[in-house]
Design a protein around this nucleic acid. Structure first.
Lengths: 157, 157
DNA sequence: GGTCCGATACTCGGATATCAGGTGTCCGAGTAGGGGCGG
DNA sequence: CCGCCCCTACTCGGACACCTGATATCCGAGTATCGGACC
């Protein structure tokens, strides 16, 4: 069970975009320089957040990415699931219905208990991530952080 | 973030072994037939549970696998982490210290907030899995299940 | 009949191919801005 | 001096290689058992 490395990238990128002024944008190249990441691959992953409706992209000069919604309405879960997919890491293939020990269909009306427990754990994970929004992340940073981020990311204080 | 398919196999195998009488064993071939799984690959994965101390293996005729401890002391978490590893799916590579926006080391005394939140979610997932033991899984099955399992798995009622 | 011994068959354990998905890179379509020209 | 137009450069978006790790398979080392021979 491993999240893509780009998960960390996008979490930090989203947190950085949340520190810009409303409406301001940062290009993929700027974000890549800011964190020293491969620009092309980062751009590809940012598309996932656009498709998920977390970010909005504008093309052309002065274009780039910005938050599609207020930072308080973007949770860590939405970012993580945008890049990695919302599927549960445990996929029940109903092996209890296969092989010599196959259970009759009548006993399989209820979902497999093991699958249910795994789904329960996944839900606990999701709930934990859903309780934190980007605005809370920003609030935990030093007060000087947003200004510094704007300067070093876009060059406009 | 995807768990190996063998995770489901091992959970069901462990649950089946927990239904045998104390000291009884089932071979990898028997378990593979019971669930219609590739025997060789299943044997390889069962080794992981042996190394983790969840199962005990005995070679030779009448040999096979059995629980290394009482079912009440084996949690789902131990099984899942035995096959997939105990590492967190999110790996913080401290990109906040790299690139143009690199933070000074003095601000990085505290762990990255995003990494902390991800670790918190992972801990919630682990706690959820740690609260369920194999004996609780068995208890949730129909009373006739253990007898049936013993018969179809090892042939000895 | 009891006991010892050897062959046997069955078990796990690790080393070896194969394939999918994340990682990395590239080029093309589209657009907003800036400069030049004309009125 | 003002407005319009064209060009440029910059942006995202999707299509194409590469490489690590999960998947699948095989063969070898070790051992408890079963049968036979001997005492």
């Amino acid at each position: 069970m491993k999240l893509p490395v780009s998960t960390e990238w996008l979490l930090h990128c989203a947190a950085s975009l949340a520190q810009l002024e409303a409406g301001a944008t940062a290009s993929a190249a700027q974000l890549a320089q800011y964190f020293d990441l491969p620009a092309a691959y980062l751009a590809k992953q940012l598309q996932a957040l656009v498709k998920a409706g977390v970010l909005a992209a504008t093309t052309g000069p002065r274009g780039g990415f910005r938050l599609a919604r207020p930072a308080s309405e973007i949770t860590l879960l939405q970012i993580v699931e945008a890049v990695d997919g919302a599927a549960s890491p445990y996929e029940c293939r109903e092996i209890r219905q296969q092989g010599r020990g196959a259970l009759p269909a009548e006993e399989c009306q209820n979902p497999c208990i093991l699958a249910a427990k795994m789904a329960e754990a996944h839900e606990a994970w999701r709930n934990s991530l859903a309780t934190t929004s980007l605005s809370e992340i920003i609030a935990a940073l030093p007060p000087s952080a947003p200004s510094r981020t704007r300067l070093r990311l876009t060059g406009t204080p």
